[in-house]
Design a protein around this nucleic acid. Structure first.
Lengths: 245, 245
DNA sequence: CGTTTAATTGAAAGCAGTCAAACTATGTGG
DNA sequence: CCACATAGTTTGACTGCTTTCAATTAAACG
């Protein structure tokens, strides 16, 4: 069951990071009905203030959560990678409190709310996995808040790069020679509460001290341990593989 | 049932903000077993890295969630008021990813994990209320991230004051003549990613422009509408009363 | 009262922002 | 394949919000 070639493989893998799922539950997940869709970069998947209709899973590509101030400044409040759920909270809340947009061209599976609700009701294991998924995202948001509130630009940027690398690795998506960061420097700034200009300068600092190598948007850490130290990074908050269920 | 005098009244009120609870469910909540305890300001209720044993509810007083950087800087990532649950996530995760501390002297009810788990299993309504509670907190964290990442000190501080007033009001704890802010300026700084010195100066700015009046830690807004505008505040993210269930 | 904690104020320094321009990469149409 | 347009990156000079450091005043507490 685990070896079939399904677009949902990464979603299942993601849920299994954190909870034990029975073979039966895994089977039910693979059987989820849904509408497959390809989105261009920038497309909105969820809009703040609107009632949710379905629940989307990210099959490939990247997405982000975003909020705006009244004056138009943007804060990216979350980053989703392949296998991540995009709006599980829509299963329980009637109004979206933030926007979700495709960061790159992305493939998603739009699953009807009711289908997942039924699944969660029928299977305690899946219900548990959904909650753990939600809680993990909340934990990441708290770490981001610490990052933006209390770390300087260099540490802050390094921390985001470490988190991304760690999450990609957990999904089996990290390559040997580093990874392609799917964000513009402006988007990095919006995620970190900085300006794109300062992101550029801070990237140069990290590059200048030999912590990483860049080629376009491809990033490779020269020394993971050193990068961890620079970034003040510890992965407990990602809750990868620590839930016995 | 709603009029009895129980220490859990505020907890029930809080859950009812967001979801419809049957009389039966309310009865079950009031019947929750638990150990009543009084904590001094600063006491730890949850410690990062430790496995949770019980789930606490705040009956009176205030508490906060907190994380530290390696260099010792503190970020307050959440604020709890009477009626709030302090660690619902302990029901689903095996390791705490942040600390929870009493902000003031506080009364809490320590409920065994298993009791709530049984309750959630037995009552879909209560399970739903728990998830909505968790999701609301996550939404607040995202708004805080936007606040810290993209708003200047004046707006940022005003926003926190508005949120506090709104949440207190929803719990029936707001007085006519403003409210007593239960935080030192240092703690305000830690919640907003600022220094205590700058909090002090920013409070003076808000006071100087006549947006609020202070007497010690008591704060009164002179004009709620004006304060909302200054703070760029909108309460949708608090999800007060918008869940049909 | 004396002691401790919190609030307040001033002066100076610094990190990050703003503004503007140049440069590079990518993509499109002729 | 080139010319042009567009989006993103890079760099410099200058500004400014917030921090830092230090000292003073006020409030809370036994």
């Amino acid at each position: 069951m685990a070896d079939i070639d399904s677009p949902l493989n990464l979603v299942v893998r993601r849920l299994r990071h954190q909870t034990h799922l029975s073979e039966e539950d895994v089977g039910k997940l693979y059987a989820l009905p849904g509408e497959y869709r390809v989105l261009e970069a920038g497309s909105f998947i969820v809009r703040e203030g609107e009632p949710p209709r379905h629940c989307a899973f990210l099959l490939s590509g990247f997405a982000f959560r975003q909020k705006l101030t009244n004056s138009g400044a943007r804060q990216i409040v979350g980053l989703q990678i392949p296998g991540d759920a995009l709006d599980l909270q829509s299963l329980y809340l009637d109004v979206a409190d933030h926007n979700v947009q495709a960061l790159t061209r992305a493939e998603i599976l739009l699953v009807p709310r009711s289908a997942i609700q039924r699944l969660a009701e029928a299977s305690p294991g899946i219900a548990h996995a959904i909650i753990v998924n939600i809680l993990t995202e909340a934990s990441i948001t708290r770490e981001w808040l610490l990052n933006v509130g209390r770390r300087d630009a260099r540490t802050r940027l390094a921390h985001l790069l470490c988190e991304f690398a760690t999450r990609m690795d957990a999904q089996g998506l990290a390559g040997e020679g580093g990874y392609e960061l799917p964000m513009t420097q402006e988007q990095l700034g919006d995620a970190l509460g900085l300006t794109s200009v300062h992101i550029n300068r801070t990237l140069k600092v990290l590059e200048g001290e030999g912590a990483l190598v860049r080629q376009g948007r491809r990033i490779r850490f020269t020394d993971w341990k050193n990068m961890r130290r620079i970034a003040d990074f510890s992965d407990i908050y990602l809750h990868i593989g620590d839930q016995t269920g």
